[in-house]
Each structure stands twice: as C-alpha cells, then as structure tokens.
C-alpha cells in the first residue's frame, strides 16, 4: 500500500506552509522605510545630528531611552552628556520629539515595518500631534 494520495497531500501542505512567505509577498517587496527627517526643527539645525550617531540610535535607541527614563525619573538626573561632550536635556517628549515632531513619519514607520509595538506610547505621546 502506497497511500500516494495522502503523501502528496502532505507534501503539498508542507510546501504550502514553507512557501507561505514567498506566496504572501508574491514578488513584491515592501519598501524599506526611510524615516522622515523633514521637520522644521531638524531643518533649522546647523549640523543634522542626533544625540548620538545614527547607527547607534537606530540599533540601540530603545535601550538608550530606557536608560534615560531611569536616569530622569529614578535618579533625578536630567542631563545627558553625549560622546561628543555635548549636554542634552533628558526627555523623550521634550527633547526627542522636539526634533522628531513627526511621530507618524519617523517612529511609527520603522515600528510598523518591523511589527514592533513599544509601550512608550502608553504614556508618552506626540506633543505636536492633535491626538493622544
């Protein structure tokens, strides 16, 4: 007894499951998000530089913000001195969001792309937006 029908069905299910991402994407790549830096505050900057270098900010901002949070809230330390020796006021809402006043086109873009739901926004919000 070969049960070839059952084996073929099984193989098709197997292939279907493993080919799912390919079928789902059907040859159309999603565009890699380019977080917009097009805000008045950034435009006004003489040197377009974040608190730390871009690669660091991209890869480590979550840890960095977490650290800021603890410093400000728990340690009462509101000043951050970056690698270049420059002082920055520690505040997500009042420092980060001042430049990046475009949460939708900046934060959310990558977060949505990578399917990340940070709980920052449970309390914090975009001070420039009209909605909570």
């Amino acid at each position: 007894m070969y049960d070839s029908g059952k084996v073929i069905i099984g193989l098709l299910i197997f292939a279907g499951i493993f080919l799912f991402p390919f079928v789902y994407q059907h040859g159309a790549p999603a565009e890699k998000p380019k977080p917009s830096l097009d805000t008045p505050a950034i435009k006004a900057l003489p040197v377009k530089k974040c608190v730390e270098d871009t690669h660091f900010m991209i890869t480590t901002h979550m840890q960095f913000l977490n650290d800021w949070r603890d410093q400000a809230l728990r340690d009462g330390n509101r000043w951050y001195v970056n690698k270049a020796g420059k002082k920055v006021w520690i505040s997500l809402q009042n420092t980060c969001m001042k430049c990046h006043s475009n949460k939708k086109d900046f934060c959310d873009k990558c977060h949505n792309y990578a399917a990340v739901q940070p709980y920052c926004w449970d309390c914090h919000y975009d001070p420039n937006g009209s909605k909570l």
Partner: peptide, 26 residues
Amino acid sequence: SSAFELLKPGKVDAEMEHEGHHGGHH
C-alpha cells in the same frame, strides 16, 4: 537611597557646569 541630588531651583545653570566636570557621571 538613590545616589542623586536634585538641582535646586534657580541654580540650574550652576549645576549644569558642575555636571560637566563629571561627564554625566554622578
């Protein structure tokens, strides 16, 4: 017993300088 002292009102600037010496370390 947290390790940090709060800046006094009106003394923000002075404190900032003080901070500078320690490079953010407290």
